[in-house]
Amino acid sequence: MQIHHRRFGRTGWDVSEIGFGAWAIGGAWGDVSEADARQAVHAALDAGTTFIDTADVYGDGRSERIIRDVLHERGGKRPVVATKAGRRLNPHVADGYTKANIEAFIDRSRENLGVDTLDLVQLHCPPTDVYFRPQLFEGLDELVAAGKLRHYGVSVERVEEALKAIEYPNVVSVQIIYNLFRQRPAQLFFREALAKNVAVIVRVPLASGMLTGKLNAQSTFAADDHRHFNRHGEAFDVGETFSGVPYDVALEAVDALRPYVPQGATMAQFALRWILMEKAVSVVIPGAKNAAQAQANADASALAALPEETMAHARRIYDQLIAPHVHQRW
């Protein structure tokens, strides 16, 4: 099946609308073997994926190094590889976001990924104050001029951070959570991103696996899986785990959505296709722990557009069940 492509903001890149999110092959998702991780990346690329998203903290560089090795092994035309920087700071505070610190992280990622110039570096969900520090963005401009990266963007927790970030003229992309359980970005942010030709990378598209439809009240998770240790935001923003929706409420919403899954599609593919109905979205980056998951994710690109009736039902389920828990928080 042919994977469709979209323009990535004003970079001049065309990328596959389904990308590969490489958090799961780094860590915090239970045990993923090196072999499975490599096969997942290979499968995504074999399916036509041309955008990979990773970060320096995913497995302390493991994710970046696996990507490096797979791309070296394959040769040929490289996909766009985006990484993130900032979460290595300890403590993770706004004052740590200096040009010097970010440059050191970038240099480490260049080594991990085996390249002189990174395609895209994203600030990795920094504290809100960082978006009000123009000197940092000027420093990023200097690193672009120095040839260490081609472009930079931001990965945000909240819509308000996204709106502030795109006031900086050289922020080419924003990574944000948007899915059937997190619909607020479509109200204002997407319109502004389109107006400024800013690429939108959608993460957590399946709400940490909840929107695969495979979880239930008895599901358990490994001790090193964030779905076990971050259920209440103990380690990082709770919005990154099940999109911040209480587990029992999320299960109820999934059951309400099941009748609208297109015939022949999985619920995960339906959830991905729902995101792709939004024209402001440049690429969605579901994760995969193995080759089969990577292939199934890519296949969502081939689904037909969802009917207006289905979109209306999805909005109603969100308004009634989900919005009271998440809408104004992020």
Rank of each mutant, 00 (worst) to 15 (best):
A271R: 00
N90F: 15
N101Y: 14
H72K: 14
I317D: 01
Q175S: 13
A186E: 15
P169G: 11
D129L: 12
G287P: 04
E34Y: 14
A223W: 13
V198A: 04
D14W: 14
E103K: 03
A323W: 01
D95W: 13
T220D: 14
A104Y: 10
A40I: 06
I106H: 03
I102D: 05
A253I: 14
E192D: 05
E73V: 07
G30T: 02
F105P: 03
E111T: 14
H327R: 06
A40M: 07
V198H: 01
V154G: 00
D248E: 15
I3F: 03
V172N: 12
D319A: 07
P126N: 15
E161F: 03
G96I: 04
A296Q: 06
G9N: 04
I176C: 10
V238W: 12
N101F: 11
V238M: 14
E160F: 14
V80D: 02
H92W: 09
Y152R: 05
P307I: 03
V81F: 15
G48T: 08
D46G: 02
R158G: 01
L321W: 05
G86V: 08
E157R: 06
A186P: 13
A35H: 10
P79Y: 13
Y152C: 08
I52K: 05
Q175H: 11
A146H: 08
N170R: 11
L113P: 07
R87P: 09
S33W: 03
I25F: 00
A40T: 12
E161R: 01
R231K: 09
Y97N: 13
R258F: 14
K99E: 11
L89V: 05
M311P: 03
A265L: 00
T117F: 06
I176S: 09
E103R: 06
F221N: 01
R68L: 14
